[in-house]
Design a protein around this nucleic acid. Structure first.
Lengths: 343, 343
DNA sequence: GGGCCAGATGTTATCCGTAACATTGAGGCT
DNA sequence: AGCCTCAATGTTACGGATAACATCTGGCCC
């Protein structure tokens, strides 16, 4: 009943030839019936469909892709880590848009490491994806080269770039940090500290630092020493708590963390030692994670359009695959969210 | 310089033939040099490697998979939603284990819908993955049939099953709920309510309900009416808050939510109306998300081994692909985490 | 020096769908 | 009736890497 049982065959799944035999037509007719039904006589179409159901046929995308005549319908998404809710949100947005069009997301985690990103680009390219979604806009020459030569559409996300590889969706991390820093100053804080993750591995952290420093310069306020914190992975509450003393030692009256997680960790630590937040110490975060709403006082933070980034990236990818018109670049606004952790 | 420029070619990437030409050998020698270097003379190997670097060659997995002679190195993971941190954790665990072995995770979100899961199984099967990781242990006959016929190793996760498709990694949701319910009773609560997500779409929620009811029966305590809540998607704080009045109307002195998010929503709502938690009302959650540690009072909850599930699923998959010995079934313990939201 | 062996490399067939071209047959027109 | 047309279906070649088998080469032994 299955042609594949005649000869040794790796897969137990029926082939198109099996369907053809069951329907009493040739393989090509089955192919047409599946992908261009209008070209097949109604009666034949019905028989082919019955045969597909009967055999439990699942098309082999691989063969079509190899022939270069059909697409893999795979879109690769490279994010630093799925652990961080913001990137998970972006991936969700992406797959929400792509899913209904028959595209599937293949996920890779770079762990914020450039070399790992390169390795993943090469590894994923081996599967001939139809498009790439990448996080950030800085990459190694090798990565850029591979992507360019592959001719695959690429969307870079989470930042803006004057020299994008192809398409970009993001917001200005520098402006966001700038806006928050000015907000803190406007609320009367004068010694505003800045704490971010390890900036060497993360261009976005560096941009935020620039925005922070620029705002203070504009306002004539002092830039406090920036402590190093944690590992280049997922921020933890403990790291935020641990950095508190070092910052207070510099006489800070406000701390701007580039992660809500650090900020909440510091907030809890501050409360534990009886500090008045927001009176004696203002605390601000970044990302507007669920925990920012839940702590008391609520955390002042910057809402970033994580989900929206994924949605727009998906739209751009679809457009570039179907030839539809769509701008190469989209800037999405961030939003400052004042809560009670600042005056 | 590129053989692919001679004739129309979909991809701009170099082929193995291009490498062969650059190295002055045949394609087969390149193939061997890449996948079984010991069979190639050292000098040739060096030339091939130089040629690979020079041309920027990236292997085409697709071709190898089609020939049925090499593996796709794709592992498909189907989860309800990436939004929920627990499933994201599982996926991280999975890809941590598989990544170093050259396997990549292709992610699908079922949105807790059975028909969507079936559609995804078929769609992903079309890419000939080497293994499947699925969430839950109940699936449609069609899904089971497809998976079985494909002969692909399957790991079902997050629950236990007496009739697994292949391999299972999970814990007993029933026992976990049972343990929490007994704990609440032991702390002196007598009218213990249970609130979960929509159980029709989620076998795990149903199992927990069974555990809750069993514990109360054993203890001779009343089973309170179980309110319906929310949509079958990601739990929100608002939904937890909204359900509070209905539960209190039944005279509950403790509420066991099957999600920390609901529990925290209710906790904040209870505090807003001046209720004494844990004195007048005990609140317990499920999953031990970061917010459970952050709220005040800290949320009593059940820690589930989300990350560990992914790790073990990855190990089982590797074992079944390499023929290594590994049990078909793993039961991972949950942990009750008492905090201050219960007496 | 002839023959043999083993290591290194080359040749061929194959995996499964699909585009392009080929063939068949029914109906319409003069 | 003969011929043409077009819709429906069939046939052939191809994509890129790989296993199996074929060939070649140099070194060793008697």
């Amino acid at each position: 009943m299955n042609a594949s049982s005649d000869k040794p065959n790796a897969s137990a799944l029926p082939r198109m030839a099996d369907v053809a035999k069951a329907a009493g037509v040739t393989q090509m007719t089955v192919s047409r019936a599946l992908r261009d039904p209008a070209k097949v006589a109604p009666g034949t179409l019905a028989r082919v469909r019955a045969a597909v159901a009967e055999t439990g046929y699942v098309p082999n995308v691989v063969a079509g892709v190899l022939s270069g005549r059909s697409r893999s319908r795979i879109v690769t998404a490279l994010i630093p880590t799925i652990q961080h809710a913001i990137f998970a949100d972006t991936v969700t947005g992406l797959s929400e848009v792509l899913g209904p069009h028959g595209y599937h997301v293949m996920l890779g985690e770079t762990g914020y490491r450039r070399d790992e990103e390169d390795a993943l680009i090469a590894a994923f390219l081996a599967h001939r994806p139809d498009a790439f979604m990448l996080t950030g806009v800085t990459r190694s020459p090798r990565g850029r080269d591979l992507l360019r030569r592959s001719g695959v559409p690429v969307v870079e996300t989470w930042e803006l770039s004057r020299t994008p590889l192809d398409m970009v969706v993001g917001y200005s991390n520098e402006d966001a940090a700038h806006a928050m820093t000015r907000y803190l100053a406007q609320r009367g804080y004068r010694r505003i500290a800045f704490v971010s993750g390890p900036s060497r591995t993360n261009e976005r952290a560096r941009r935020r630092e620039l925005g922070y420093a620029r705002a203070l310069r504009e306002l004539g306020l002092p830039v406090l020493p920036i402590p190093t914190i944690g590992a280049p992975s997922v921020p933890t509450l403990e790291e935020g708590a641990a950095v508190l003393d070092a910052v207070l030692a510099h006489g800070a009256d406000a701390i701007f963390f580039t992660s809500d997680v650090y900020a909440v960790g510091a907030l809890l630590a501050a409360q534990a030692r009886g500090l008045d937040v927001p009176g004696a110490l203002g605390i601000a975060g970044f990302h507007d994670l669920p925990i920012a709403r839940v702590v008391s006082p609520g955390l002042t933070t910057v809402h970033v359009p994580a989900h929206e980034i994924g949605v727009l990236a998906g739209r751009k990818i679809l457009a570039s695959l179907t030839g539809a018109a769509e701008p190469k670049k989209s800037v999405i606004p961030f939003t400052l969210v004042p809560r009670q952790s600042t005056r």
